[in-house]
Nucleic acid binder design. Structure first.
Lengths: 347, 347
DNA sequence: GTTAGCACTCAACAAAATCGAGTGCTAATC
DNA sequence: GATTAGCACTCGATTTTGTTGAGTGCTAAC
């Protein structure tokens, strides 16, 4: 608000025009262009004066003397926060493609990333839902054969974990039953963070006489329950960055694509996004604002979706700073709703 | 053999020298270079004459008049088949990195891809093991809560599948027990291809009176068992292709990287590789020989590894045609053994 | 405060010039 | 007959130079 006042309406309009034009063309925009293609009815000279001011204020900058102006990060920020008007538009295509086939979660998410990439022409990522504060809902051990026991553990949000445990001697049916009872009564409803060595030791004690085998099994179960540190992230359209010359020189392309392949940095991004608590769940990082230094020449827009039970995932779009913010935000919101709907419909 | 005779030893030596030099530099190699940097003691003029012959025979070619020569696909092929001498070398590093941490299969494979990429400077892929002729080893249905049943299915090679089934009305304990019995007696040991609608119908009949719920459950189980058509493939070092100018123009890079991200084509490659039955399990595709047209300017080297139970997976390396075949083959064999060892040690 | 006009800047493009690696061919040599 | 030195020639790559035009800043007039 204050910024808006301080700048004055005319400057704002000019800034808006510059940004919009730059978003379309990717070329620095000059005073003449603005003078001609807006309804401001000002000569290029006047625009030049205003532009000089805007540059001094840090909203735009010149790549080199005697070039037009391009928006600075600060300029983009103002644009996203104030200037952008969200125009409604149809986008049912997305929906249809989406619902087509979506029985398995991972396929669904991969598909989501793909559709979003196709729809926006940027690189996209979708993280599988995680829940740091998840609880155990159900545990069961079953004898698979003489030497193996299979443990099935169901967490909140119906996340299932399996582990096959090799045992040196078979467990009696009776013991297995007891063990199941014990595990369920003790662990049921327990947040997984609370499962630590101490607890395991206690369990072993309670299990008592059955000796080593029980110990082995309990250790294995504890191991299986641990949160897997690397979350699943699906990406698509990474090569879309080649469509934007400012990102597609070898150096940048190399870095960005690597980041998308190795996922490490994306994980960080997701974690950060999920941590941040905002009402809409949508966040925009412009240039240097990014949590991931590799992408300091990009803009990143992220959204979170929910599954209930506190399970959350992230959708993200990475593109050039001159990304079509309106379109991206719209698509993202749409997909967000879509996912919410799907997950709440079929649990 | 015949080729070797036909060419004559000197031509072979020259060809060898040309290829080796080209592998290192990536630049067309001229007669002078060969004349100077080999122990042939021939003048550049002589080399030129020989080169003219080699070109006529199709083993090398000129990118343009008055440029040096580069190997043709046919030349590479000869090199791989005959000329290459596998020199032994240490490579324990690989092994160490490998064993460091490898409890979960997917992490292990991802790690394998990564190590291989780092080691070779090419793009790599590792497919998770699949088994088209897999059998059911164990099935169990358990009541999770009032409205949900969880199905756990274990296949050969200890592949586990889960499915949560929503039921409209709870199943009685007794019915559940019967159903479990039925499933195990009928399906145990059965190859998953044989599970089709007919069989399901028969099962439903045998289950008899229990009505719709059983039907629902059986359908769900059948669904869960189906082979998931898209296999898991882990990639790494895709951006290594930027290191090779001949692959890193926008067009090619774009295509190759896309192929690595979207995996569709890699799946095809893996399928093809697994189908091919060769003793060593190692295959080399040079240029146009590739099953994946996108990579017609690359060479691809693949190897299969085994888990027993007929489960097989693939490791692959994609790089420029002037790849360091010796090194690649060596690394690949090494990793192949490594994986075999790991999997056979800890089942 | 706005605008017309002008000198100036500078990236981008294109044409021209230069360079040099490499070739094929011929004639001399072993 | 095989090898080699030598030379004219080719052609991509690089550098140089010139040209263009979009765009600026500044000044003076409106």
């Amino acid at each position: 608000m204050r910024v808006e006042e301080a700048l004055g309406e005319r400057k704002l309009k000019i800034l808006h025009a510059i940004i919009q034009n730059y978003l379309e063309t990717g070329e620095p925009v000059g005073s003449r262009t603005i003078s001609k293609y807006t309804d401001l009815n000002l000569s290029s000279a006047t625009i030049r004066n205003e532009m000089a001011d805007l540059e001094e204020l840090g909203y735009i900058l010149q790549p080199h003397t005697s070039a037009g102006r391009i928006p600075s990060d600060k300029g983009y920020r103002l644009y996203v926060d104030l200037l952008m008007e969200e125009k409604e538009q149809e986008l049912d295509e997305l929906q249809e493609q989406m619902l087509e086939k979506a029985d398995k979660m991972d396929q669904l998410l991969k598909q989501a990333a793909r559709v979003l990439a196709a729809n926006t022409n940027y690189a996209t990522m979708v993280s599988a839902p995680v829940n740091s504060a998840n609880k155990i809902k159900f545990i069961q051990l079953t004898q698979l054969d003489e030497e193996q026991i299979i443990a099935v553990i169901v967490l909140g949000g119906n996340v299932i974990k399996n582990k096959i445990i090799a045992v040196s001697e078979p467990l009696s049916n009776e013991n297995l039953l007891k063990l199941n009872m014990l595990l369920n009564t003790t662990l049921n409803g327990m947040p997984i963070e609370q499962i630590n060595l101490g607890l395991i030791a206690m369990l072993k004690e309670q299990a008592g006489s059955h000796g080593d085998v029980v110990g082995e099994v309990l250790d294995a179960v504890a191991d299986a329950i641990q949160i897997d540190e690397d979350m699943q992230i699906y990406t698509s359209g990474t090569t879309n960055i080649f469509k934007y010359p400012e990102l597609s020189d070898k150096q940048s392309a190399q870095e960005i694509i690597s980041a998308f392949e190795e996922k490490q940095q994306l994980t960080e991004l997701v974690t950060r996004t999920l941590a941040q608590e905002e009402n809409t769940g949508i966040q925009v990082y412009i240039g240097d604002e990014t949590p991931v230094q590799t992408m300091k020449d990009c803009s990143i827009v992220t959204a979170t979706y929910e599954l209930g039970d506190g399970m959350k995932g992230t959708i993200g779009i990475v593109g050039p700073k001159r990304m079509d913010y309106e379109h991206v935000l719209k698509s993202l919101k749409h997909l967000q709703n879509e996912l919410d709907a799907i997950f709440h419909k079929k649990p």
